[in-house]
Computed example of a mutant assay.
Amino acid sequence: MNILIANLLSGAAKAKGTAVVIDVFRAASTACYAVAAGAARIIPTGTVEQALALKAAHPEFVVMGERGCLKPDGFDFGNSPTEIKDADLSGKTVVHATSAGTRGILAAMESAQDVLFMSFVNLSATGSYLVARMPEVVTLAAMGRAGETPAPEDKLCAMYLKNELEGVPNVMDAIRSFVRNTPSAEIFFGASAIVPETDFDLCLDLDAFDFVLRAGRSPEGFVELLPLGPGRGRLTPDATSGDVRAV
């Protein structure tokens, strides 16, 4: 397994093999909490307008996301684990529009053979998926802020997964302490806070969930994220191909 690390939207657009799109603060984390709250699938979109158009066409859909870290007008939820974790999303389709993560998924779909969405909260499940599948090339795409500026939490998450796959020890407590004192954390704390402070810990809750978020095409032609894992279909290596399928 050749593990590459790419950065930002430009890196996601050039991803090779299996792409792991990483957005810790907060898109991939929020997507995982939405699935844990019962969402059946998540439809990532590139713009707020696309998300609202899907909502208009399908009033039963739930829309969550952000621009400038804040919930856009007309959305049901922001891009916030705190907002979404106690919602009842049982069986719902959730439309997700963010500045970096959801755009990264769509970009990676153009070049990669397989696309996963990851944060610290589903890191080990994602690692297990990769070990079971053993793709020749894995691209870890750290999305950064708005897909344009590097963010330490995304780079550290990519390195954490790379270390796990290569048998190198990690220290999550050190990562939490370091990230707490970076510009990325300013949105959570003090006078500069614009999002729930509790999101910080929720996004850094290592292995809170045991499922993978995998992108594919829906029957309607949408890109959609579906959860694979215990309770969502067990990850099982195919005896002949080494592939992974939900059973």
Rank of each mutant, 00 (worst) to 15 (best):
M159S: 01
Y160K: 02
Y160C: 03
Y160T: 14
Y160P: 00
Y160S: 07
L161M: 03
L161P: 01
L161F: 02
N163Q: 03
N163P: 01
N163E: 00
N163M: 01
E164Y: 01
E164S: 10
L165E: 12
G167R: 02
G167S: 01
V168S: 04
V168Q: 13
P169V: 09
N170Y: 06
N170E: 08
V171H: 11
M172Y: 15
M172T: 14
D173Y: 03
D173P: 02
A174W: 02
I175Y: 06
R176D: 13
S177P: 00
S177L: 13
S177V: 10
F178T: 13
V179G: 03
V179D: 02
R180D: 02
T182I: 07
S184I: 11
A185V: 04
E186C: 05
E186S: 14
F188G: 09
F188S: 12
F189I: 13
F189W: 14
F189T: 14
F189D: 13
G190C: 06
A191P: 08
S192Q: 15
S192H: 12
A193Y: 06
A193Q: 10
I194S: 07
I194Q: 00
V195F: 09
V195Y: 09
V195E: 06
V195K: 08
P196N: 11
T198P: 00
T198I: 00
T198V: 00
F200G: 06
D201S: 14
L202I: 02
L202V: 05
L202T: 02
C203D: 15
D205M: 12
D205P: 03
D207C: 09
D207P: 10
A208C: 14
A208D: 04
A208G: 12
F209I: 05
D210K: 13
V212A: 11
V212G: 11
L213A: 10
R214L: 09
R214P: 05
A215W: 11
A215N: 09
A215S: 11
A215D: 08
G216W: 00
S218D: 10
P219V: 10
P219R: 07
P219Y: 00
P219I: 06
P219M: 01
E220G: 05
E220W: 07
G221D: 04
